[in-house]
Design a protein around this nucleic acid. Structure first.
Lengths: 121, 121
DNA sequence: ACGCTAAATTGCTATTTCGTCAAACGGTAG
DNA sequence: CTACCGTTTGACGAAATAGCAATTTAGCGT
């Protein structure tokens, strides 16, 4: 494990980073990105894969497009979307790892330690 | 550039990942994490650094606590918060890098190429 | 021109979430 | 105990957002 020293971010940068996280904070959008891991797909394909209505899928794809996370290619009647920013997968993987660690730690605490995490109310 | 192949995530995992991203999608919460980079701090210190009202800071800290991103230590009248999940900084750094790249690319396009990103309506 | 189809957009309702104020809680000191 | 202080919590109004239904836009074929 490296002890990277991370830089403080400016107020403006923070705002932009928050916005990017917000784009990734909706399950349907993550499902769409997940589906696009296999490669470019049309809206109808994505509709079928996600089981959501077309209007919803279109709207969320539009958001992802504006954010620069995906790119669009129009061909005839169809629009094909693909991943434009591959870092999203690394982000997801990193979060997954972090969640795994946390779960594992919580399990440890279940064996005899009652003092920490789940914030009792 | 490595061509990592990333795993597809389960429906449930996606939901959890989305929730984690949501926690990180608020500017004030990122400001709090940013302030905690220097180490453990009390609520009042964080109130002063962020310029937000105390009730607000407390509420957001509570969210970060529930999410396991920060940890709390109570001493006398005060509560001291610290980072519990260091991956948040790597996540932010990664997003920053990605945004930087995107901005650079957009600047390129300004010199003579009118076809791509900002989604004209 | 017309109809058919894929995608994008609009209007609406319901839910969520932020920020603020006010009150409650928990320690500490006089 | 009472008064005070730092923190947490509850309630309220305002703004944002997801989902659904209906409409519009745009390409293709007849």
């Amino acid at each position: 494990m490296s002890d990277h020293t991370h830089k403080h971010l400016s107020e403006d940068a923070l705002e932009l980073v928050a916005e990017r996280f917000k784009v990734l904070s909706e399950p349907l959008r993550l499902r769409l990105l997940n589906a696009l891991m296999d490669g470019e797909k049309s809206v109808s394909e994505l509709v079928e894969e996600t089981g959501s209505l077309q209007a919803n899928v279109s709207k969320h794809l539009g958001l992802l497009l504006d954010a620069g996370v995906v790119a669009r290619r129009k061909e005839g009647l169809r629009s094909y979307y693909r991943i434009a920013d591959k870092t999203v997968f690394e982000l997801c993987d990193m979060v997954c790892g972090s969640l795994h660690d946390r779960l594992a730690a919580d399990l440890e605490h279940l064996s005899g330690d009652r003092s920490s995490s789940p914030h009792r109310r």
